[in-house]
Amino acid sequence: MGAALAINVEEAVGELIQLVSFNLGDEEYGVEVLKVREIIRMPNVTRVPNTPYYVEGVINLRGKVIPVMSLRKRFSLGEAEYDKRTRIMVMEVENELMGFIVDSVSEVIRISASEIQPPPPVVKSGVDQECMSGVINQTERLLVLLDLEQVSSQDERRMLTSVTI
């Protein structure tokens, strides 16, 4: 994945990329705006039993039932109460909708592709290396670019193997 994105990045040098930036704790993350379907407030979440603890459950998105996961829990960033700033980012992952719970969504930023640097080899935060597709180092902020497709596809694999055991 890292390789594929690297190529993308190289091709896109100088091009502007739009990112949605969001917060998990004190850290700031970003995902490509085109991948985000919508951003909604926390509705009632129905817990789904026998799922990994970071899967909060399912929600009703205008008649569609979609799973939501807490990115905080997913990346082991500690739990936090949901408040009025909490948002669900609904993204299309492998042709299915999925919600990711984040502390808050701040803004859409434009950066040039050349600003994206490969992720540092060792990152202290709990974010899995594979889910991180780059780091954006602007003067007063550090933004971690996430690849959420990677997040869920990894989980799926993990869940599948756990089922077969």
Binding site: V48, V93, M98, M159
Partner: peptide, 15 residues
């Protein structure tokens, strides 16, 4: 349907 991500949960047929 619960979708692919939550497929094959023991005891749950759907929602």
């Amino acid at each position: 349907s619960l979708g692919k991500y939550l497929a094959n949960l023991a005891g749950i047929a759907g929602s």
